[in-house]
Nucleic acid binder design. Structure first.
Lengths: 345, 345
DNA sequence: CTGTTAGCGCGTTCAC
DNA sequence: GTGAACGCGCTAACAG
C-alpha cells in the first residue's frame, strides 16, 4: 500500500498536479469534465491531502494551541467544549496541552515558579507546531503576568488573566448581586455570605455584588454575617455553625461556591435547621452535584461554554488583525431549585 | 521581525544549515566549539524549529489524534489526563477532537447513523494532519464496529469497542464482585441490585459479579432483589421504593452507578429508612458528588486515568509494530465511606 | 479560460 | 563540516 499523493492522483486522472491542487482547493476554475474526472480518482483512491505539506507552503495551520492547567478540574471541560464549538464552525483544529498541575504540584499555586517550566515548555512546543494562537485556561482566577512569553503569537487567557493580554472573564459581581436580589425578593433581610479566600478576585467581586444588593435595597449591613471561607466544604460547615450560633440568625446564606454549600447543608442538618424552611441557601458554580443534594440547591451557573467560545472568537480576530471591540462580559444564570424559600414568620 | 529559521542561524554562526540541524537533533557529532557557537546563536535569537517542515521530511509527527465523543461527560477528562500523562513522558502531542455528541444529538446513541458523519469527518481531518494513531473515547460502553475507517492507521478504543480493533476496558465484573464481597463481609445476606439498562455490557458484567458473589457465598438468589434501572436517579428512586415495599426487605443495595444511588438515598430518606443503619448502599463510578451526599456514599472508583494511559501505551506499541501482549485489565477500587454498616441484628 | 511546468517552504540527510 | 536533493502540495509564470 504505497502512499498515494497528489501526483498519483494526477497520473491516474491524466492531468498535472497543479490541476489536482486547483480542484482540491477551488483555487481556480477547472473545466467541469476535468474536475469530475479528478474527483472520481480522488474518491476511488480515498486520497487524503497531506496538511503538513500544505501548511508548510501556505504558512497556515488552522490550528490553535490550548493550554489547560488541568483538564480534570470542573470548569475546564466545558470551556474546552466552547472552544471546540467555535473551532468546528470555523474549520480549525485544537492542539491540546494539559499541564496536569493538580497532579503535579497539588495546590501550591501561589508561586508561579512551581510550574513555570511546564507552561514555558508547553508554549515552546506549541510554537514549534506552528499554532496560530494560544488559549490558556486556568483552574482558578488569578493573575499570571509574566508566566510565559509567546514570542509575539496572540494569546488569550480565560479563568485567569495577565496585565498585557486579553482575558475572558465573566460577570462575577453581577452574578452575586442577582443571587442576592433573588433572596431579597423572597423576603430575606438578614442574608449571610460565606466567601472564598478573600485575596481572590472572584471573592472580592462577589462580595461587591453582595454589598451592592444590600445597600441598594437599604438593608442593614451586618459584618457578623460576612464569613471568610476557603472554598472547601469544611469551611462552609464550620462557618455555618458560627452563623447559627448568632443571637440573631440569618435567614439565608449565600455561599460563594457549591462545595462550601455542602458544608452549609451538613451543619444545618446537624443543628436540625431545615432547608429551606428555616434557612435558605444559594450556591455558586452549578456543580453537577448541586442537583443531587437533598435539597437540590439553587445556584449560579457559570457561562463556561460561552467563555471558551468567546476566547476563540477574540483570538481568531486578533490573529486576523482585526480591531476587536470588546465582547460583552458573559453572565451567570440563576438555577432555581429547592433550597430557597421565604423566611419564616 | 523577520521570521528566523535554520538558515539565519547558520549564517550567524557561520556554518552550514546541515551543521545546525545536526546540533539541533544530535544526529551527528559536531565539534564542541562549533556546537557551542551554534547553540549560542540559537539562544540569542530564541530560535524555535519548525516542526511542520521537520515532520514533512521525516514523515513523523509525534502526534496522535484523540476523538472524544463528548469531553463534558464525567469519565472523559480523566481518561484524557491519562493520555496526556503518557504523552508527556514520551514527548508526544495530542490533537483533540471533541464530537460534542451530547449537545448535538442528545442521547440518541442507538443508531450510529446519527453521528457517523461527525466521526468520519473527525477521522478524516486527523488523517490529513498526519497523526500517527487515533484514540477514540466513548461516553458509554457499547459496540461501534464499522463506525469509522482509519485507512490502516492504528486506532484504540476506550469506553467502547469494536470487533476488530483493540479496546481498553476495565474489570467490571470483578468490581461488582468485590463490592458485593464487601457487603457480605459486613454481614449482609439479602443484597438487592439496581442495574443500568440491561442490554448494556457493563450492566451484564456487573450483574455477573453480583451473581458470582451470591453463589460463591452460598447465599440464596432472590430475583425479587434484582431491579432494572436506566442509570438515572429517578429509576433508583422508584426501584428503591419497590424494594422497601417488599415483605422481606433487603438490608443493602448495590447501585450500578452513583446517580441512581442518589435516588436510593432520596427514597430511603422519604421512607424514614436510615442509611446506613437500616440500609447499606454501595454506588459505582466514584462521581465527585458521591462524597458530598449525606451520607457520603461508598462507591467503586473507575480506573479512568489508567485506561487513558494504557490506551496510549498500546497505541504507541502498535505504531511501532510491536507485538503487544495484552495489558492486564485495569481494576476498580472500592472507596469506603459512610453508607455501609452491618445489618441490624 | 483551462492546463502545465517548475520552483518554493524549511529542515533533514546523503554523498563528498 | 558542507552542498544540494528531497518531502508534498501550492502557485507564479507561461502556453495554448
Amino acid at each position: 500500500m504505497t502512499k498515494i499523493g497528489i501526483k498519483e492522483i494526477a497520473a491516474m486522472a491524466d492531468v498535472s498536479t497543479a490541476t489536482v491542487s486547483y480542484v482540491l482547493n477551488g483555487t481556480r476554475n477547472v473545466k467541469l469534465k476535468t474536475r469530475e474526472r479528478v474527483l472520481k480518482v480522488i474518491e476511488e483512491l480515498n486520497y487524503k491531502p497531506n496538511d503538513i505539506a500544505k501548511s508548510l507552503k501556505i504558512k497556515r495551520t488552522n490550528t490553535i494551541g490550548v493550554i489547560a492547567e488541568d483538564v480534570t478540574v470542573f470548569n475546564v471541560p466545558e470551556i474546552i467544549d466552547g472552544i471546540n464549538d467555535f473551532a468546528d464552525q470555523h474549520d480549525m483544529h485544537i492542539l491540546l496541552t494539559n499541564l496536569r498541575l493538580h497532579k503535579r504540584i497539588g495546590r501550591n499555586f501561589e508561586h508561579t515558579e512551581n510550574y513555570r517550566k511546564y507552561a514555558v515548555n508547553a508554549v515552546s512546543e506549541l510554537l514549534s507546531k506552528q499554532v496560530e494562537g494560544i488559549i490558556y485556561i486556568g483552574v482558578h482566577p488569578r493573575e499570571l503576568t509574566g508566566l510565559i512569553d509567546t514570542a509575539g503569537k496572540p494569546i488569550v487567557y480565560t479563568y485567569c488573566y495577565t496585565q498585557n493580554d486579553l482575558s475572558i472573564q465573566y460577570n462575577d459581581e453581577l452574578a452575586s448581586y442577582e443571587a442576592m436580589c433573588h433572596l431579597i425578593k423572597k423576603g430575606h433581610t438578614r442574608v449571610a455570605i460565606i466567601s472564598g479566600i478573600m485575596n481572590s478576585l472572584p471573592s472580592q467581586r462577589r462580595f461587591n455584588g453582595y454589598y451592592k444588593a444590600i445597600t441598594e435595597h437599604q438593608l442593614p449591613f451586618d459584618p457578623q454575617l460576612v464569613k471568610m471561607g476557603d472554598w472547601e466544604a469544611e469551611s462552609g460547615y464550620r462557618l455555618t455553625q458560627e452563623l447559627l450560633a448568632l443571637p440573631d440568625r440569618p435567614t439565608a446564606i449565600l455561599s460563594m461556591n457549591d462545595v462550601m454549600a455542602v458544608g452549609v447543608l451538613r451543619a444545618a442538618s446537624e443543628a436540625d435547621v431545615h432547608i429551606p424552611k428555616d434557612l435558605s441557601v444559594v450556591g455558586f458554580d452549578n456543580r453537577e452535584f448541586s442537583s443531587y443534594l437533598i435539597p437540590r440547591i439553587t445556584t449560579m451557573d457559570l457561562p463556561l461554554h460561552e467563555m471558551g467560545f468567546q476566547a476563540m472568537d477574540s483570538l481568531t480576530r486578533i490573529i486576523r488583525g482585526e480591531i476587536l471591540d470588546l465582547n460583552p462580559l458573559p453572565s451567570c444564570t440563576l438555577i432555581e431549585r429547592d433550597s430557597v424559600a421565604p423566611p419564616r414568620g
